[in-house]
């Protein structure tokens, strides 16, 4: 993939980092029908999102197909400083995955 499917913005304020990320993913539930063919669109959704910073896992999110398409996720953690890197990765039910790294501001 030339371009990462994940956009990350992280900002540190008073030792607490606030992370916002946007993942581009269809998040198909497997319940929707293709209007032209009448066939069900197979499920494809992110099952797990892992966020790491400073060698530690700060957040491990397990998702169902309930999460909206192009998921947005925001969370915060303490003990961070400006310039630290944060790594976000996801795995979906078809085994596809992607990850990205960003520097915190």
């Amino acid at each position: 993939m030339a371009k990462s499917s994940i956009k990350v913005r992280a900002k540190v304020k008073k030792g607490e980092a606030k992370v916002k990320c946007l993942i581009s993913h269809p998040m198909e539930t497997g319940l929707r029908k293709n209007k032209k063919t009448g066939k069900l669109i197979p499920p494809r959704f992110i099952q797990e999102v892992v966020c790491e910073s400073g060698g530690k896992t700060v957040m491990n999110a397990q998702w169902n197909a309930t999460i909206s398409k192009n998921p947005f996720l925001s969370f915060a953690f303490s003990g961070a400083k400006s310039g630290d890197t944060i790594k976000i990765s996801w795995v979906d039910n078809t085994g596809k995955s992607d990850s990205t790294e960003a520097k915190m501001k």
Binding site: E16, V58, Q62, I67, S78
Partner: peptide
Amino acid sequence: AATFNLGATTS
């Protein structure tokens, strides 16, 4: 819908 497992320093 989702389960978020938080780390020790996560708010």
